[in-house]
């Protein structure tokens, strides 16, 4: 069981991370680079008490939001790509504050962008679909396939398959206070705890990574899952990433009051998937 106090702590770090993405997102201007955007997020969060990272902030602009033209894993890191009017952007960060982690993804565009508006609406159908299926105890590989099918029905390509191990989600464990050290942008303590989960997973035939493959042919294990459906569409990419709480009682999103859920038309998954 996860105690409510701890969930509250996660919720407030998640809110902090989204506030950072919203504020830094609003500050982006024509010509700013991905590197600069990532740096602003880092400074913003560190000024507000963030002392460690599950991973350092990422920023993707333009067709890089759809992971187009990315060949090596190093291409995912913030680049010198400059923002232009009408361009989509994604800000992604995973701060740890007092040992409590969040991992968020925020999509927007500089100026009006009808494609991104539509994709963000459509992501909400994935949000409902995922929590519904996990609640029904459907195994994770099948949820992954259902997300794929919905994306295809909507006219998009699944882009989370481009993440390391092609995961739709990964577990977020509590991290102990440890010296701040990162390896390729990922916090060492977080990597260690993920590593421990993998070892645990091997014994229990479960995985802390949620993919479409054989290792995910099991229902969600209790704990916190950072779920990040990522859709791609001809030079445009959109995602959200937030924590899903899985317990014996069922699954629910940690927080329903987030930038991408506020004021958006919530189309139910069942309507689109029908």
């Amino acid at each position: 069981m996860i105690d409510e106090g701890l969930l509250g702590a996660h919720r407030s770090v998640q809110k902090l991370a989204y506030a950072c993405a919203e504020e830094v997102g609003a500050s982006l201007e024509v010509g700013v680079t991905e590197r600069e955007a990532a740096r602003r997020m880092r400074q913003w969060l560190e000024a507000r008490g963030v002392d460690d990272w599950f991973h350092l902030p990422f920023a993707w602009f333009g067709e890089r939001t759809a992971f187009e033209g990315l060949s090596s894993p190093l291409d995912f890191f913030p680049s010198d790509k400059k923002l232009a009017r009408g361009m989509p952007f994604i800000l992604d960060c995973a701060p740890v504050k007092n040992g409590v982690a969040a991992d968020i993804g925020f999509t927007s565009a500089l100026g009006p962008c009808p494609v991104i508006d539509k994709m963000k609406d459509d992501l909400l159908a994935h949000r409902s679909l995922i929590v519904d299926l996990v609640n029904q105890g459907v195994d994770l590989a099948r949820v992954y396939a259902a997300v794929d099918a919905l994306a295809e029905k909507q006219g998009y390509r699944n882009r989370h398959s481009k993440y390391p191990l092609g995961v739709l989600a990964h577990k977020v464990e509590l991290t102990k206070k440890a010296p701040r050290r990162t390896l390729l942008g990922f916090g060492l303590p977080s990597l260690r705890s993920l590593g421990e989960s993998v070892i645990h997973g091997v014994r229990t035939r479960t995985s802390p990574f949620w993919s479409g493959g054989a290792m995910s042919r099991h229902p969600a294990t209790p704990g916190l899952w950072a779920v990040e459906p990522h859709l791609g569409f001809h030079g445009y990419g959109a995602k959200f990433e937030e924590l899903l709480v899985v317990s014996e009682a069922g699954a629910r999103w940690l927080d329903d009051d987030l930038p991408h859920t506020r004021g958006r038309v919530t189309s139910r998954a069942s309507e689109v998937a029908a």
Partner: peptide
């Protein structure tokens, strides 16, 4: 849906 997305392009 195809029409809508094309127009958005």
């Amino acid at each position: 849906r195809t029409r809508d997305l094309c127009e958005r392009l």
